[in-house]
Design a protein around this nucleic acid. Structure first.
Lengths: 92, 92
DNA sequence: TCTATATTTTGGTGATTAGCAAAATACGGA
DNA sequence: TCCGTATTTTGCTAATCACCAAAATATAGA
């Protein structure tokens, strides 16, 4: 669970997650959105995978990444609840 | 704003925030809750202050830390909204 | 002014991290 | 099997980070 926070700490990774919110994308497509070398992005993907924030599917020579929205949601809700932050009302 | 995520990435700092949710505490009181040297905690306080997640008030020789709940709440809500995560319904 | 207490600042170390180039892997097609 | 494309792995460097001991700062009280 702590891996989620670590994953979110990096701005590039947050941007990757935002991009994946719109639609799933291949590793190469994602890499094109950044001014970074592909191995660098590949490392970021690995961190996001380790945190289970994204799922990957390999088709042919291409790897498609998809946002694992439930993990992100649970992590943020856990944090909100940990601090008794209800926002729009948490029903308690 | 990005400093908030960095601040939340460390488990010791998250624990400090949880402790401050219960009640405000002095630097020394907080330090006693951890198995870490005081300068280490002092560094964590500085990170939390830089992120504006805590406020400090000096009275005599003692510095009292208090949770800045609104900053934490705004940061988490911003993240939730950024990912269109409503949780219990975001009224849109 | 001297001492004790509370806290931060300084200076240093070891671990982790983000970045890159180059090499390796995996796959599809000729 | 050989080639080209997509992606990851490896090996490295520079920067950041958590941690500590020791020194510095600030305040209260004798």
């Amino acid at each position: 669970m702590s891996e989620v926070y670590k994953a979110l700490a990096d701005p590039t990774r947050r941007r990757i997650l935002e991009l994946l919110r719109e639609r799933e994308m291949s590793a190469g497509e994602l890499a094109d959105q950044f001014d970074l070398a592909k191995p660098t992005l590949s490392g970021h993907f690995a961190v996001l995978r380790a945190a289970d924030l994204v799922q990957s599917e390999k088709r042919g020579t291409t790897i498609t990444y998809r946002l694992n929205i439930s993990v992100l949601e649970e992590a943020l809700l856990a944090l909100m609840n940990g601090f008794r932050l209800g926002g729009k009302g948490n029903g308690s």
